[in-house]
Simulated assay, not measured.
Amino acid sequence: MGRLSVQSRDCVPCASVMQRLAVLGLILGCAVCLSSAAVILDNGMPVLWAQTAGQVTDLPSQNGILTPDPWHFLQRLSFYRLMIAATDPFMGSMGTNATDSPWWGPPLELAWMLTSGRLADPTGTTTCGLQTGDPMCISTQSWWSCVNYFTSALPFLSAAQQGFMGEGVQVQLQVPAGVEDFCTTHADCTARYPDAMSKWDAFFQGLKTLSVSREADREKKDSILGLYWAAQMASTYASTACDARKNQYSAEEVAFVNSWLNSAEYVAAAHFQSNMERSVKFITPLPSRILREGDSAPNISDLSQEENHSLAVFSWMRSINSLLGGTLLRMWKNAMCSVDTREKGGQLLEQLLLNPSFATNTFLALITGMATSC
């Protein structure tokens, strides 16, 4: 199937004119909030959630093939809403709340990327993603939007291939004219990124199998989360294709990028249950704007204490791991050897990232003790 190009970014298939005005008003209103914390929730849901596609048929289609535009914020966010709805019947082991699925983390993260300005064109050559241009536009030049493509578009294509979007549903993603470095179909992505796509396929297939297994819910949940994080990390590793886009940012933002990638290794190894409640706690203190030259946590004056703390912790985790030649991360992964230690690991990460009084030397001591227990 050939690549489908998009010449116009003006169409919003899943929002009426009045909804579009509401969207713009909300984003413009968020501008005054950025100096304190990035806005990720609106009425208890990810920002602009109500504007997204509630069912697959709300997405654009052509000749019986779904043709959504992942470079439009509402449509990329729709991927997550549709995947949550499609996988929820198989997520009973996650808990009794409607927002216990690990799939709630990614849309909240995407909301943070939007309101912190990280989906906009970092080159300044277009108004894509800017309030003075098209705030719903996701720039192909943004490192953040490129990396997120691998954890939104790829799993959506896999979900459709595995029948989660309906029997026989085919998807070909739109791509802006002149852009060639993004896969657009399941076959295309499988050819380019076989490990990532095979792990997403394994996740969706395993979800069906595990949901009816005789395992206790605790073990079942851990197994599902294991498949989920294996796929998420495979997508993250595949996103090295985005690396050249780092050159558009300050050294401080690039350092944060690298620390953010490093932190994902710890979260994944712990099989972290990224449900709504826990994800809000982790994403809210992330920096509410792109970092600039001279920003030095924990002393960035226009960021909150919580944002400064999270930046300092991310930086410490990456720096100490580098100084130890990768030992910290290896110790952590070794310690995540059982359901018990993985649950403790998730709690430990919460303490480290959310509790400013939690000493880093305590973190090291606890990891050492957990690793020896394995």
Rank of each mutant, 00 (worst) to 15 (best):
G29S: 09
S259L: 04
C242I: 06
A37I: 08
G294L: 01
W144C: 04
Y237R: 07
N334F: 00
R192S: 06
A371G: 07
T87V: 14
I84T: 12
G117T: 14
R218M: 14
A15N: 01
L364I: 11
D201L: 13
D58S: 15
L24R: 12
A31E: 14
A234R: 07
A38R: 00
S36W: 13
S142L: 09
N258G: 00
F363G: 00
A238S: 08
C374H: 02
A111S: 12
R20S: 02
K221G: 13
C337M: 00
L59G: 09
T184A: 03
R192K: 09
Q305T: 01
F256T: 09
L82C: 09
L66G: 02
Q131D: 08
S250A: 12
F203E: 02
D222Q: 15
F204I: 00
L207N: 03
L323A: 15
M197Y: 06
L157D: 03
G206M: 04
L173F: 06
L48K: 05
Q55T: 06
N63I: 10
Y193F: 12
Q174T: 05
L323F: 14
S93I: 05
I65S: 01
S93C: 14
L353M: 15
L26R: 08
L354W: 07
L74A: 07
Y266K: 00
Q305E: 00
S301N: 11
E109T: 00
E180Y: 07
T368G: 15
H72F: 02
S304E: 09
T327K: 07
M331G: 04
T185L: 11
C11N: 08
P60N: 02
V313H: 04
G325Y: 06
D195F: 06
T362R: 12
T341D: 11
M233I: 09
Q162W: 02
F282A: 03
M336L: 09
A312Y: 14
G129R: 02
Q62C: 13
H186L: 13
A202V: 08
N247I: 09
K220A: 07
M136I: 11
F90C: 09
C33S: 15
Q305S: 03
P107L: 07
G345C: 04
T341C: 12
E253Y: 06
Y149W: 04
D88Y: 13
A85H: 07
Y149T: 01
V23Q: 08
N43Y: 08
P285Q: 00
Y80A: 08
L119R: 00
N97K: 10
K221I: 09
K220R: 12
S263A: 11
T151K: 11
P102W: 13
M197I: 11
C374N: 02
L348C: 00
S101M: 03
L48A: 04
L82G: 08
D340N: 05
T127P: 07
G325Q: 06
R118G: 01
N355E: 08
D121A: 12
L349A: 12
S5C: 14
A38N: 01
E180W: 06
I65R: 04
Q62E: 11
S304Y: 10
A177T: 11
D10W: 05
K281S: 09
T190F: 15
I65H: 01
A120R: 00
Y149F: 06
M370P: 10
S5L: 13
G168M: 13
Q172F: 03
I138F: 13
K199I: 05
C14T: 01
A230P: 11
N355M: 09
D201W: 10
L28M: 10
D243V: 15
N148R: 03
E293P: 11
